[in-house]
């Protein structure tokens, strides 16, 4: 379905399970994906700002890498 294509549910569950070594309850992964979306939002926003400041046209990998740390630190639990 469209949702499946948009949201790789099994993949997310696998990833989280691998990292935390714990099972996920039924719908927790949706929230995780939501959080991921928020993270992506932050990341892309920061990357856009960064690339604009650097005078690039699109979003370069460099600017993404630069803001990754910032975005990750924002999403520290």
């Amino acid at each position: 379905m469209a949702a499946n294509k948009f949201y790789p549910r099994a993949t997310v569950r696998k990833i989280v399970k691998a990292h935390s070594k714990r099972n996920l309850s039924k719908n927790a992964d949706v929230l995780i994906f939501l959080d991921y979306g928020l993270f992506m939002n932050t990341l892309m926003k920061e990357a856009t700002i960064n690339s604009k400041q650097a005078g690039e046209r699109g979003i370069s990998a460099k600017s993404v890498k630069k803001v990754t740390e910032l975005a990750l630190s924002k999403f520290k639990g």
Partner: peptide, 15 residues
Amino acid sequence: QASDWFLEQVSEDLG
């Protein structure tokens, strides 16, 4: 890469 890190961070926090 960033999203990998993010997911790792998140899932460790959750764990």
